[in-house]
């Protein structure tokens, strides 16, 4: 890779060889990454009998969209997707609002217990969530929230608070104190500084966080299994999981449903990508 400026004559050739290797290596890696994804895509157009008869990696005998129709209709993916949104969006709003409030205080003020609270939030991100399942189920049940959207919204909001606060606090620390102090001198209340000065500056980080959290909350399914009973409320991942049988499973339909379920995530990625790229910087290189 060393291109010494002295050897101008050979420089271009060396670069070409390096470039060539880079392209070859990249293509290999890309292939390794794309083949399974592509296989999933093809599977969703095949029938289970076709796969059993000819093997998964064989050339499909026929392709059809029946699996997608089945997934959307009989497997109610459309309805489940709506539920996913009803659960995910309020959770996102809740966790981002509450954690940005907390992060603001943690980043800006020195007060007793600051580090303790921060550590509690950070340590919470390390919790294996399965540890909480039964206690949270009992709590939810006692409060009368079992089998409601609210049960899932609350646990998702609470569980992700740790990570959000951790990220936002680190980001907010990089905002120069002078800006806030200046606002203070102008007579702004603390809440207004937070709302009208700090929050707009944090938007890229918020967007990045929202993207990540969206995929996490959207793809959760264990909480939905434990905290919901009714099919009518189920989010899409849990809904798709019901297609798995005790003995027999129609994998192509599940794959088709899963692909449909990724569309919102894809949208979020595409639309928020711009922010995402600026987003999780945590102040690096500012």
């Amino acid at each position: 890779m060393s291109v010494t400026p002295a050897n101008h004559k050979f420089a271009t050739r060396t670069i070409d060889v390096a470039e060539f290797f880079k392209i070859v290596l990249l293509s290999l890696f890309t292939l390794l990454w794309l083949v399974p994804v592509f296989a999933a895509f093809i599977t969703s157009f095949r029938t289970m009998d076709d796969i059993t008869l000819r093997g998964f990696w064989s050339w499909p005998e026929a392709l059809s969209v029946t699996n997608f129709i089945k997934a959307w209709g009989a497997a109610r993916v459309g309805k489940y997707l709506l539920n996913s949104f009803i659960i995910t969006l309020p959770s996102l709003a809740g966790m981002i609002f509450l954690s940005s409030l907390a992060a603001y205080a943690l980043a800006r003020f020195r007060f007793k217990g600051n580090m303790l609270v921060y550590f509690t939030f950070v340590a919470g991100t390390m919790l294996p969530f399965q540890i909480l399942m039964l206690p949270v189920f009992r709590l939810t049940n006692t409060l009368g929230l079992y089998d409601t959207y609210g049960a899932l919204i609350l646990i998702h909001t609470a569980f992700q608070l740790g990570f959000c606060t951790f990220v936002l606090r680190n980001f907010m620390r990089t905002i120069p104190q002078d800006i806030m102090d200046a606002a203070r001198v102008d007579g702004c209340g603390e809440f207004r500084i937070y709302w009208q000065i700090v929050l707009p500056l944090t938007v890229p980080s918020l967007a990045a966080l929202a993207t990540l959290e969206f995929t996490w909350v959207f793809n959760d399914y264990l909480w939905a299994i434990i905290l919901l009973r009714s099919d009518a409320l189920r989010p899409v991942t849990a809904g798709l999981a019901t297609l798995r049988g005790q003995y027999n499973t129609d994998w192509p339909v599940i794959t088709a449903g899963a692909l449909l379920a990724t569309i919102p995530t894809l949208f979020v990625f595409v639309f928020l990508q711009r922010y995402f790229i600026q987003g999780l910087t945590l102040g690096s290189g500012k």
Binding site: L101, A102, G124, I131, L132, L139, A158, F159, L161
Partner: peptide
């Protein structure tokens, strides 16, 4: 002021995460 900012998140966190964690430690 800082406590007021932290309180909503902390209360929710306490009820849904911290308390159940301690309950599990007891369990």
């Amino acid at each position: 002021v800082p406590y007021l900012f932290i309180a909503p998140a902390l209360i929710l966190y306490f009820v849904w995460i911290i308390a159940p964690t301690f309950y599990t430690i007891y369990l």
